[in-house]
Amino acid sequence: MHTNEEKNLHHNQPEPAQTARSPLCFFPLLITFIMMFGLWLLLSGKFDPFHLSLGVISCALVAFLSSDLLFPSPILKGKLTVFLRWLCYLPWLTIELFKANLHVAYLVFHPRMMDLIDPRIIKFKSTLDSELGLVTFANSITLTPGTITVNVSLDGDFKVHAIDRASGDPLPGEMEIKIAKVFRKV
């Protein structure tokens, strides 16, 4: 036992990630498996033992093969809080989506629509640093008032197409602050 531990310690020293591996690499696998199995139950709709065991086997296989894709690093600390805060962000986004749609619908049904719209491309730099934050921000811009994301670079350079002057001006504004709050470091 002693030698085994010593060997483990010795083996671990060059690769610190290896220490975290034994207990922690189990969690991404488990979370992937639970998500897959929930989807299986939802889509199959059969609860007899035969179908359940088929589901367990195939979900375990897929989770074993592809859990690395969903969680690139085995460090899960803080992921849950980010996810919960992201869920709290969704209702605000839905309200904004309603306002955006009413605005665009007003433009569409306006008889002198060609005078009202003034399309142009705006460029600005975002302060967000995480990739997931940038993706969320880009999708939120596309969903909210009169703006569509044209291009995003990894450094946070945004190109946005705005349909009229009023909708393009408040960017980045409140939405970026909200998203930065969601993805801030724990």
Partner: peptide, 20 residues
């Protein structure tokens, strides 16, 4: 649908198509 028909160019047509 009406926005896709009425708007003047490709970029502005994407606004109704993407959001509405």
């Amino acid at each position: 649908s009406i926005g896709i028909l009425r708007f003047p160019d490709f970029y502005s047509r994407l606004h109704p198509a993407g959001k509405l």
